[in-house]
Simulated assay, not measured.
Amino acid sequence: MSSTIELLEMALKSKRAATWCRELNISTAAFAQAKKRGRLSPLLAGNIAIDLGESPDHWMAVAALEAERESPLRDRLLASFNRHKP
């Protein structure tokens, strides 16, 4: 599983952060918070994925798993997710 920060880095290689923020109608603080937290929200990850031609479903699932705290249920989903990679 790739991380959403890797998706953000891919996005920033194609356009500047200010351009992304303007196009997605978000504040620059959203990117700053994502970097600080080490993850993107599922909504932001999905929308960036669409613009990069990536699967929004995949990236929203990755973001949702990153947002969950450690638990046996999260570990079970993560194992299943890694087994069924496209």
Rank of each mutant, 00 (worst) to 15 (best):
residue 3 S to V: 09
residue 3 S to L: 02
residue 3 S to E: 06
residue 3 S to H: 06
residue 4 T to P: 00
residue 4 T to R: 02
residue 5 I to L: 11
residue 5 I to K: 03
residue 5 I to V: 05
residue 5 I to H: 03
residue 6 E to C: 08
residue 6 E to V: 09
residue 7 L to F: 03
residue 7 L to C: 06
residue 7 L to H: 02
residue 8 L to S: 06
residue 8 L to G: 02
residue 8 L to A: 05
residue 9 E to Q: 14
residue 9 E to F: 07
residue 10 M to I: 10
residue 11 A to P: 00
residue 11 A to W: 05
residue 12 L to I: 05
residue 13 K to V: 03
residue 14 S to N: 12
residue 14 S to D: 08
residue 15 K to V: 08
residue 16 R to D: 12
residue 18 A to K: 15
residue 18 A to H: 14
residue 19 T to W: 11
residue 19 T to Q: 14
residue 19 T to L: 07
residue 20 W to L: 09
residue 20 W to H: 06
residue 21 C to D: 12
residue 21 C to P: 13
residue 22 R to H: 15
residue 23 E to T: 13
residue 23 E to P: 06
residue 23 E to V: 11
residue 24 L to I: 12
residue 25 N to D: 15
residue 25 N to R: 15
residue 26 I to V: 14
residue 26 I to F: 00
residue 28 T to W: 11
residue 28 T to A: 13
residue 28 T to F: 09
residue 28 T to K: 15
residue 29 A to T: 15
residue 29 A to L: 14
residue 29 A to F: 13
residue 29 A to Y: 13
residue 30 A to W: 04
residue 30 A to T: 10
residue 30 A to I: 09
residue 30 A to Q: 06
residue 31 F to E: 06
residue 31 F to H: 11
residue 32 A to W: 04
residue 32 A to N: 12
residue 32 A to F: 08
residue 32 A to Y: 11
residue 33 Q to G: 10
residue 33 Q to L: 12
residue 33 Q to V: 13
residue 34 A to I: 04
residue 34 A to G: 05
residue 34 A to F: 03
residue 35 K to E: 10
residue 35 K to C: 01
residue 37 R to K: 15
residue 37 R to T: 11
residue 39 R to M: 07
residue 39 R to G: 01
residue 39 R to S: 10
residue 39 R to F: 04
residue 40 L to D: 00
residue 40 L to T: 01
residue 41 S to F: 03
residue 41 S to K: 02
residue 42 P to G: 03
residue 42 P to I: 03
residue 43 L to Q: 15
residue 43 L to S: 14
residue 43 L to K: 11
residue 43 L to T: 13
residue 44 L to N: 00
residue 44 L to T: 00
residue 44 L to Y: 00
residue 45 A to D: 01
residue 46 G to T: 01
residue 46 G to C: 04
residue 47 N to M: 13
residue 47 N to Y: 10
residue 47 N to F: 10
residue 47 N to P: 08
residue 48 I to E: 08
residue 48 I to F: 06
residue 50 I to Y: 08
residue 51 D to F: 11
residue 53 G to M: 06
residue 53 G to Q: 07
residue 53 G to S: 06
residue 53 G to E: 07
residue 54 E to A: 02
residue 55 S to K: 07
residue 56 P to G: 03
residue 57 D to Y: 13
residue 57 D to K: 13
residue 57 D to M: 12
residue 58 H to V: 06
residue 58 H to N: 07
residue 58 H to R: 13
residue 59 W to S: 00
residue 59 W to G: 01
residue 60 M to L: 02
residue 61 A to Q: 12
residue 62 V to D: 01
residue 62 V to Y: 04
residue 62 V to A: 04
residue 63 A to E: 07
residue 63 A to C: 05
residue 64 A to Y: 13
residue 64 A to V: 09
residue 65 L to T: 07
residue 66 E to K: 06
residue 66 E to V: 07
residue 66 E to Y: 09
residue 66 E to L: 05
residue 67 A to F: 05
residue 68 E to F: 00
residue 69 R to F: 12
residue 69 R to A: 13
